[in-house]
C-alpha cells in the first residue's frame, strides 16, 4: 500500500481491529514518518480519539518530537515508554508518558495500557506498538507470542484499535507468522497488502 494511503485505510477500520504495519527497512525513515502521520494525525487527530503509543524502538521524547512536528496535541496522546530506563535516558521524563523499567516486563505494558484506558476513557482508543522487532530483541519468542495473544484479545474486547509496527527483516520472520494469526490484517507499507 502506498504510504500516503495508510491514513484512509486506517480510518476505515472498525474499533477492535488489530493491524500489523510492515515497514520496508530499506525505506524505513520515509515509511516510519508516513505511518506516524497516519496514526497520530489522520486517525489520532479525530476529535474523540486518544492514542496510547508504546515506544520500544525509540524513547518517547523522540516520538513526541515527531508528533509535535505533526501538530498532534499533547492531550490526544499518551506514551508508554519501555526503553528510556534501560537506556539510562530518564532524566527529563515527559508529562504525558509513563515509564517502564525494562521491555522484558511485558505484563507491565498490559497494565499501563489498562491504566491509561481507564484513566482517559475515550470513544475511540488507539494503541500503537512500536515495534514488534524491538520487543523481540528483549523477549523470547514463546513469551512474546503469549503476550500478543492476551494483549490483542483484551484490546479487541474493549473495542480498541491496535496497530503493531514491524519491519520485514529476517529477525521478524518467525514472529511475523505468529502475528499474522492474531491480527485482522497485515498492511505492507510501500508494497502489496
Amino acid at each position: 500500500m502506498a504510504p500516503a494511503d495508510i491514513g484512509d485505510r486506517l480510518r476505515g477500520l472498525p474499533g477492535g481491529s488489530a493491524v500489523a504495519l510492515k515497514l520496508d527497512p530499506r525505506e524505513y525513515a520515509d515509511h516510519y514518518f508516513a505511518v506516524l502521520n497516519a496514526t497520530l494525525r489522520d486517525i489520532g487527530g479525530e476529535t474523540d480519539a486518544h492514542v496510547i503509543y508504546i515506544t520500544v524502538t525509540n524513547p518517547a521524547s523522540f516520538v513526541w518530537g515527531l508528533a509535535q512536528a505533526l501538530d498532534v496535541p499533547a492531550d490526544r496522546i499518551s506514551f508508554v515508554d519501555v526503553i528510556s530506563h534501560i537506556m539510562m535516558n530518564y532524566s527529563n521524563p515527559l508529562a504525558n508518558a509513563t515509564y517502564i523499567e525494562t521491555p522484558r516486563a511485558l505484563e507491565e505494558i498490559m497494565l499501563r495500557v489498562d491504566y491509561l484506558l481507564r484513566k482517559f476513557p475515550h470513544p475511540r482508543a488507539i494503541v500503537v506498538v512500536d515495534s514488534l522487532n524491538a520487543l523481540a530483541i528483549h523477549n523470547p519468542r514463546e513469551l512474546l507470542s503469549e503476550f500478543f495473544h492476551i494483549f490483542l484479545t483484551n484490546l479487541k474486547s474493549r473495542n480498541v484499535l491496535t496497530l503493531i509496527l514491524m519491519t520485514s527483516d529476517e529477525e521478524a520472520g518467525g514472529l511475523e507468522q505468529m502475528l499474522s494469526l492474531l491480527v485482522d490484517e497485515t498492511i505492507d507499507v510501500g508494497g502489496g497488502r
Binding site: Y115, R118, P140, E146
Partner: peptide
C-alpha cells in the same frame, strides 16, 4: 496474575509463563 498499584487502584494482568 501480575499486579500493579496504580493511582486509580490495583490492576491485574495475566502472568506470562514463557520463561
Amino acid at each position: 496474575y501480575v499486579i500493579e498499584l496504580t493511582p486509580i487502584g490495583l490492576l491485574m494482568a495475566p502472568h506470562l509463563k514463557g520463561s
